[in-house]
Design a protein around this nucleic acid. Structure first.
Length: 887
DNA sequence: GATCTCACG
DNA sequence: ACGTACGTGAGATCC
């Protein structure tokens, strides 16, 4: 059989890949989309054509003979974007690891090297296959040489041999050069003959054979106009043809041996793919290594082989000691939803418990599900744990949650959904919940789904979890995230699940009463605003409000947004003295916010069965490691203003046997800063338990503690905030409404007194830049690609992120540890008291009246000793009949 | 769905 | 010169 040689136009293909794929980048900030597209394409070509020899040709920067002969060659062509240029050396590294031959030479384009290789192959009686996105290469087509042209980005290839070219263009490959000589090429700036396009050129070539013949016999051209053109531009056509001619005799040594296809350097390739985060390609390397591939999970199990008998499941689990689970419910309510199906994968087998079997089966499986020694795997296990609670099952032994694993690997991803993991890690497309259930108005529930569909979904779900498990564990191990995962985040799933299920009791009547009061006030003030404005309008619309204030009332516009006038609180405060309407609008805004977000918003989410509010605590949302709260957000209930604070009266204990205990860390972020910066002054201040803002003011303003004025203290407080946020003179000046110069003076003074903090800020930015990420005390990691950006704003943002994330994130680590310890201790002592809420530096416990003293002791002890720092952690606690009273 | 505004730590 | 304080979620408007 004829041996095959594949020759790839490297520049052309990487260019195609770059524009075909969205601009992907690795966590460390390298752009990777073009390399990814190229490698996928390369694999496809190797699979489809199985070449014996292969080479990839590249252009060099040095001018070629075409440039030397023609100054304007490729003139006007846009420079390669740097996001693509950066990927060329990476691609070359990958090709080297793949042990694929590369060829490039000063003075010649990739095309010429390709032409030369084609000629070489033909002489050796090989079949040549050229892969490129550039139709120029069609001139190389022959009976022995195929040209593959990329179509529609990189998704498919068009194949041409000499006959193919004839069929498509009605001219021979050789004549393709004449075609370009006549019609020119805009992208290469080859002139051709002006006014002659593809149609005319092909007609002429068919009639005369080539440009030389055409020029000799222009008298035979029927159109006078065309004849004149050809006569006039004859030399230019000849010249253009020369430029368009691909060389086939570049003086280059070719050794067939070097082009021979070899096995890749798997180790190097694996390392590269890992760094580039080409998870789906990593499987391919493993295959070559004859390692077992996790992908086989998808191959040997069919939906028909699912087992419905849960009794056999029980035996199976007892043997394996582990299972992967996905429960399906008929709605969104964690308290009331029925489970309508449970999918379990155990070993290689899939089990499905049908809706009607669920109650009985769960009775039977209870001991297994509640056995902490049996390891449970899944994706968003908190949801599964919650849905099982209605059946009095307390899921224990949750050991691996792929969503959380992925979150620790990269907490800034936009999605942790199973279908995205499947595609990324396994290169396998599976249906998402939205695909299966639809969205918006026509969304159905799992209970409406055909059973086989549900089973397929469950199989994909569990298979994906099991297939990515080892790889994610390995990734976490490499990033030193294993302990954080197993000792903090996984145990926290249980705590959060219980908090959600416990819920926060609300007093509906207070809510109603507050709502009525607010409504009255809103009505009243709305009228007053209309009177001042002289007309009624929608005060909620920044657009309409802007028109009233700045056009009609002609108040000075302070700030603009993208779309018009800004009317935010800072703007309004600056205008307050100028018009009585401003104060009304400020008050109106407060009232409406309270009514819509807090009164109406909270009412809408009170559970019908428990009369409580069951917020969702999300563990995979924030970039810093904090948890977030949704539906409703219980982490932003008003407190700062007296009126808003009233809302807290709504939040009460479950019944009269309980009280609320609120415990909050005092200055946890500044204490964390003291610890990680090792700043002597800061550490000393906390050891002495000083008022930290007064202490800072004393240092910054150079006055004794007792002489610090309240203005000085509040400015120092702003400086402390600024420090935590990653200070800038601009930010501080905006916040304090002072000049940037003054702000800079404060900062300089601060850093001259807190040299340890200064050193920390410099070092963490440096470290972030060097490593591409920063870490917290528990080694939680956040990548900051922006820190190396050339754009000032982006880079500055990256630097502030580097300064802030270790502080905010370590504080998050600490309170997570405290939550686990408090929860465990309450349960260990079989107390009735339960954790019900976390607000970043604050824990709220619903404490049984008989247990108050014990609970206070537990909470204080566990919170203050969650992690041992160079400064003490201090917790303040308050007990009350409502959240409002815990002050 | 983007934008603006504002509630919290 | 550049022009943002860090981290969230929700409601309302408007296109």
């Amino acid at each position: 059989m004829t041996k095959k040689m594949v020759i790839i136009d490297g520049n052309s293909l990487i260019n195609r890949a770059y524009y075909a794929l969205p601009l992907l980048s690795s966590k460390s900030g390298d752009y990777t989309n073009a390399v990814y597209g190229f490698v996928n394409m390369l694999y496809k070509i190797m699979d489809d054509y199985r070449p014996d020899y292969i080479s990839v040709a590249f252009d060099r920067k040095a001018p070629t003979f075409r440039h030397l002969e023609y100054d304007e060659y490729k003139a006007g062509r846009k420079k390669m974007p740097s996001e693509l240029a950066q990927q060329l050396p990476i691609l070359k590294d990958v090709l080297d690891a793949l042990k694929i031959h590369r060829i490039e030479l000063d003075g010649f384009e990739a095309d010429d090297l390709i032409g030369t290789l084609v000629k070489y192959a033909e002489n050796k009686e090989l079949e040549a296959i050229v892969v490129t996105g550039d139709r120029d290469a069609l001139q190389l087509a022959s009976s022995k040489t195929k040209i593959l042209i990329t179509k529609k980005g990189i998704s498919s290839l068009e194949e041409y041999d000499d006959k193919g070219v004839m069929e498509r263009y009605e001219i021979t490959p050789q004549q393709f050069i004449d075609l370009k000589g006549l019609m020119g090429d805009q992208s290469d700036n080859i002139p051709g003959v002006p006014g002659v396009g593809e149609k005319t050129a092909i007609k002429l070539i068919k009639e005369f054979g080539n440009i030389e013949e055409l020029i000799q016999h222009t008298d035979k051209i029927s159109s006078a106009k065309l004849r004149e053109k050809i006569d006039e531009f004859a030399q230019q056509a000849i010249f253009s043809k020369r430029l368009a001619t691909i060389m086939v005799d570049v003086p280059v040594e070719i050794s067939l041996d070097e082009l021979k296809r070899e096995d890749p350097d798997s180790e190097k390739l694996m390392e590269l793919f890992k760094r580039l985060e080409f998870h789906s390609l990593m499987g391919r390397v493993a295959v070559k290594n004859k390692m077992e591939t996790t992908d086989s999970n998808f191959l040997d199990v069919k939906p028909t082989s699912v087992i419905f008998d849960w009794k056999s499941l029980k035996d199976k689990i007892k043997n394996t000691g582990e299972l992967c689970i996905r429960t399906f419910t008929d709605g969104q309510d964690i308290i009331q939803d029925d489970i309508i199906g449970i999918h379990v994968r155990c070993g290689e087998e899939h089990f499905f418990i049908k809706g009607e079997d669920v109650p009985l089966a769960l009775q039977d499986l209870k001991e297994i599900l509640e056995d902490s020694r049996i390891r449970k795997y899944g994706h968003y296990l908190k949801r599964d744990r919650n849905s099982l609670k209605r059946y009095k099952i307390v899921l224990k032994g949750m050991a691996f949650d792929s969503a959380i694993a992925l979150y620790l690997i990269d907490p800034t991803r936009s999605s942790y959904e199973i279908q995205d993991i499947s595609l990324e890690y396994l290169n396998r497309k599976i249906e998402s919940e939205e695909d299966v259930l639809g969205k918006g108005k026509s969304k159905t529930s799992f209970s409406e789904l055909a059973e086989e569909k549900l089973i397929e979904f469950g199989m994909n779900w569990c298979n994906t979890v099991m297939s990515v498990k080892e790889s994610l564990m390995e990734q976490m191990k490499e990033a030193e995230l294993g302990v954080l995962f197993s000792d903090v985040e996984m145990p926290l799933v249980e705590v959060l699940s219980d908090m959600e299920f416990n819920g926060f009791m609300v007093d509906q009547s207070i809510l109603d009463q507050l709502g009525t009061e607010l409504d009255e006030k809103i009505q009243h003030i709305t009228q007053s605003i209309y009177n001042e404005a002289g007309e009624s309008f929608n005060i909620n619309s920044p657009k309409q409000l802007g028109e009233i204030l700045f056009d009609k009332l002609e108040l000075p516009a302070v700030k603009k947004t993208k779309t018009g006038y800004s009317t935010n609180i800072e703007v309004l405060e600056k205008l307050q003295k100028k018009h009585p309407i401003i104060a009304m609008i400020i008050e109106y805004r407060q009232l409406v916010k309270l009514k819509s977000t807090y009164i109406d918003g909270l009412k809408a989410v009170i559970n019908k069965e428990t009369h409580k509010i069951h917020s969702s605590f999300n563990q995979t949302v924030t970039a810093t490691g904090r948890i977030s709260s949704t539906e409703p957000n219980l982490q932003n209930i008003p407190i700062k203003l007296a009126l808003g604070r009233e809302i807290r009266k709504v939040f009460i204990p479950s019944d009269e046997d309980y009280l609320l205990l609120d415990a909050d860390y005092s200055q946890i972020e500044l204490r964390v800063l003291a610890h990680i910066s090792k700043d002597d002054n800061l550490i000393e201040a906390f050891h002495q338990d000083l008022d930290i803002h007064t202490s800072t003011a004393s240092k910054v303003f150079g006055v004794p503690m007792e002489d610090v004025t309240s203005l000085q203290r509040s400015r120092a407080k702003a400086v402390n905030f600024g420090i935590v946020y990653g200070i800038s003179d601009y930010g501080l000046s905006e916040n304090l409404q002072i000049t940037r110069k003054e702000a800079q003076l404060y900062i300089d003074e601060y850093f001259s007194r807190f040299t340890g903090v200064k050193r920390y800020m410099e070092e963490i930015v440096e470290e972030g830049r060097k490593l591409g990420y920063v870490t917290t005390l528990l080694k939680r990691r956040r990548y900051i690609p922006e820190i190396s950006a050339s754009n000032f704003n982006l880079r500055s943002f990256g630097e502030r992120t580097a300064m802030n994330t270790p502080i905010q994130g370590s504080a998050a680590d600490i309170i997570k540890l405290a939550m686990i310890k408090v929860d465990q201790e309450l349960k260990r002592r079989k107390l009735k008291s339960r954790l019900i809420l976390q607000v970043h530096d604050e824990l709220i416990v619903e404490a049984h009246k008989s247990e108050i003293d014990e609970v206070k002791e537990i909470v204080k002890l566990q919170m203050e000793n969650a992690l041992n720092l160079d400064v003490p952690l201090k917790v303040d606690m308050n007990v009350g009949e409502s959240w409002y009273d815990t002050k």
